[in-house]
Design a protein around this nucleic acid. Structure first.
Lengths: 229, 229
DNA sequence: TGGCGCGTTATGTCTAGACTTATAGCCCGC
DNA sequence: GCGGGCTATAAGTCTAGACATAACGCGCCA
């Protein structure tokens, strides 16, 4: 008796994993469960809400709650600052700015960020090192239309990512992972061989509908992103 | 007055993005906020709890709540069944089993899944097609020690992933993303060229501490995993 | 038979209050 | 000055009850 929301959550979870409640089946409503577990409806509600957030069950007003037939498993990845990522591994972080130009946005970038014709962007190429070894190559484009102050920022000491996080704390983003090939230039930056596979993250961010930046991050060969769920 | 938890959440969010509350600074406690917003403490609590889940703020009993200095952004990816993934794109899904053997677990697999010596595993090579084109190559190893019934299952019609989801509904998993190269054999399966970069997902799963399966999924060149956050 | 409207119902949210729990930071003794 | 123990505080959780809201699916009507 007197179950906590965690008790309720894990008990329901085990009923599902043990197969007592089959996929697609309707689970008792909150009032019944509150009676069964001897707790208030709010407690059951919290347990069920978390299970729904985890993609285990599906809830609809009036229709009730059912076990998802094909459970949507989701993995969460932390997207830390490179510096943190490296320092958390116990390695020494070093940053360097390789190139810096101000130019009109190329067509592919305008399409991606939905920029108008003639938009000017700041283009930066940076490297991040862990214990002196190349770790990540950063190909960064910043929209000067929304962030004109970026033109005056000094990116030789602090990376554009950290500068952006401090300047535009939160924003909408689209992130995608893919595998690419190191061309000769990228291979040189990463001290790897031409034709090596590189793990790539691309991210576009907006703030209140305004495009801020697009970045392509290429990791040294062998990099993996791992998480448990 | 009479703010909902969403009102509170978005107002606090905007205070942070606008810089009213600087990173690292202490946020008023729940009772004060409840007074400010004219709502119950539970309402403020829910708003704050969600912000903490999102990695925006950090909460500690007695110490209070503060804005995270370097916000941990996290991205969530849905990990659907391949069939769903393909059908959701509007393409026709086709599956085929290419190889099936029962063998002692190789050393690398024993290390990865923490298996004892002499463990037997079922090794499957499968292909998933979208509109007839190779989409995903599946290199699957199932631990027959925990799932002996897998040896009798018919994997020629339904893929091992779907069979597993139906048999062992939920489990702990470790998932990792990386970039690899297509060797001649894999390139043949994926109808691509030797040396093409392939996006790779590896997943190991356990159930109540028992290793169930390890799988290496290789996608056709050009594949991307995308999400918004 | 088929389409529309609406009452019923399960979830969603809020409240005021009480109790629990972790712990920051003060105070005291060494 | 330093370490250990105590306490006040803020978050964490629960309750009983109320009202809000979405929408399922029955029944009515064409």
């Amino acid at each position: 008796m007197k179950a906590t929301y965690k008790d309720v959550k894990s008990d329901i979870m085990s009923k599902i994993t043990k197969g007592d409640w089959a996929p697609g089946s309707l689970v008792p409503n909150e009032i019944e469960l509150a009676g069964i577990y001897g707790c208030a409806r709010a407690t059951v509600n919290r347990a069920m809400r978390e299970l729904a957030d985890d993609g285990i069950i599906e809830r609809r007003r009036k229709a009730g709650t059912r076990v998802r037939s094909s459970p949507i498993r989701q993995a969460r990845f932390d997207i830390p600052l490179v510096r943190r990522e490296i320092e958390d591994k116990g390695a020494e972080y070093r940053y360097s700015l390789a190139e810096r130009t101000v130019e009109p946005a190329p067509d592919w970038l305008r399409a991606r960020l939905k920029l108008g014709v003639g938009s000017k962007v700041l283009h930066l190429i940076c490297m991040h090192y862990a214990d002196g070894d190349p770790y990540q190559h950063e190909d960064r484009w910043i929209n000067l239309g929304t962030l004109p102050q970026a033109e005056d920022a000094d990116f030789t000491q602090v990376g554009p990512n950290e500068w952006l996080v401090a300047t535009v704390p939160f924003s909408d983003a689209e992130i995608s992972f893919s595998a690419g090939l190191a061309g000769p230039k990228l291979a040189d930056y990463l001290a790897s061989k031409d034709g090596d596979p590189v793990f790539t993250i691309e991210r576009s961010t907006w703030w209140e509908g305004q495009a801020i930046t697009y970045v392509k991050l290429s990791f040294r060969p062998g990099h993996r992103m791992t998480t448990r769920y």
